[in-house]
Design a protein around this nucleic acid. Sequence first.
DNA 1: TTCTTCTGTCACATAATTGTCATACAATCG
DNA 2: CGATTGTATGACAATTATGTGACAGAAGAA
Lengths: 240, 240
Amino acid sequence: MNLDNSNQNKTILIVDDEAPIRDMLRVALEMADYRCLEAADAQQAHSIIVDEKPNLILLDWMLPVTSGIELARRLKKDELTQSIPIIMLTAKGEEDNKIQGLEVGADDYITKPFSPRELVARLKAVLRRTNNAGIEEPIMIEDLCMDPISHVVTVNDQAIQMGPTEYRLLEFFLTHQDRVYTRSQLLDHVWGGNVYVEERTVDVHIRRLRKVLQIENYDRFIQTVRGTGYRFSTKLAIKA
Amino acid sequence: MNLDNSNQNKTILIVDDEAPIRDMLRVALEMADYRCLEAADAQQAHSIIVDEKPNLILLDWMLPVTSGIELARRLKKDELTQSIPIIMLTAKGEEDNKIQGLEVGADDYITKPFSPRELVARLKAVLRRTNNAGIEEPIMIEDLCMDPISHVVTVNDQAIQMGPTEYRLLEFFLTHQDRVYTRSQLLDHVWGGNVYVEERTVDVHIRRLRKVLQIENYDRFIQTVRGTGYRFSTKLAIKA
DNA sequence: TTCTTCTGTCACATAATTGTCATACAATCG
DNA sequence: CGATTGTATGACAATTATGTGACAGAAGAA
């Protein structure tokens, strides 16, 4: 539901066919307060990834059936998973594969055996490095401007203040105009898929967003579609 | 992705006491179009560094007289040289030293033996990461002035005292205005990529920086963006 | 050494945001 | 026209994020 505040709610997926190694990794990661998931092969890994969307994947190079590098390649090809950073685990003497791993799109690799401290240090570095994703260009609607770089919304160059949720809601609307969304869909996209809040809560945040946008009647773009949900549209803003 | 292919203006200093290894490294680097310098011991290395200001240092762990790690420590301590990225070269089985190297401030390490391709890949990565053309000109914001040469910050020609971390934080802010940074990103840029400190530590240093900037209310430029992080901006410094 | 400065972390204080509710209002339909 | 259903809105307590002072250990200076 929230951004990366405490490093403690990051989910790491461990993919290795050897249980003892998984155990060792899990211990090290849980010591560092990460949440761990485990998979023994590529197929199992894939379903967990789709299901749980981990923040980072520790991927062994050697896997039965589908190799780790093949899994990495697939993950980096898929829109939904390509942003998840991958750290490849390689055994000693597989130095050449490291390069191959990096070429496939792995974000780092670690040679076994490694110290737990090293593991965690690298993992943190990768998480930090890949933490930024999103829109870079300012979005302008008439005199309304949202600049994702500075994280500022202005109307006629005057800054508008709003809460984080309202900001995300507006951002979603601006990037998904002229389309109705049900409350459920909005919860999915703005709140994040795995939280449970009442659907009516959406109404309240719509209200709050409308309130701050009232300054130049920009709230007219947020339209209620009775029986369905809400829509943001500049074209269909018939109301005065 | 790779915009800058002109490696010719990048100077790499190779520090290793074994001539054959130096040769190998030099060949690999010159193939990749880097300019190379060589040093056989720490003392020689130091004078070359001061003299030539290389863009990156490849530093062997084992050196006669003064060890590589000791040299690294000194370089990272000196204001003039601390921004030069260092890649440590370690022999197999010295895995523990890696951590020590990173703690000293090395930006990466490579285990011997390594493939030339790997070397260059890592080197590029480090250069990309630390691609900061050092600031030379004083930065002025109204009556606030930061002189990177003398390392002095003044308000109305009156010097302000602050700790090194606060200085680096302010420097980062002054050179990256009007943009939100998460705590994580600030740790990356101000503290350095491979240290582990709590994210809340950023808050404390923000606090300390604000405190010393309160003199002429210059702390109003440091804005907190709730749910995200902090931003330095002179434009958006008005609050209701 | 001893003294000072700086750093990272903690605990607590303060402030902002959130989700939910109760109620008011508006639209739709028989 | 009521009755019914869907939405708007203000209030509020719980939760969460940030501000802030204190402190112990580390790093440096004398």
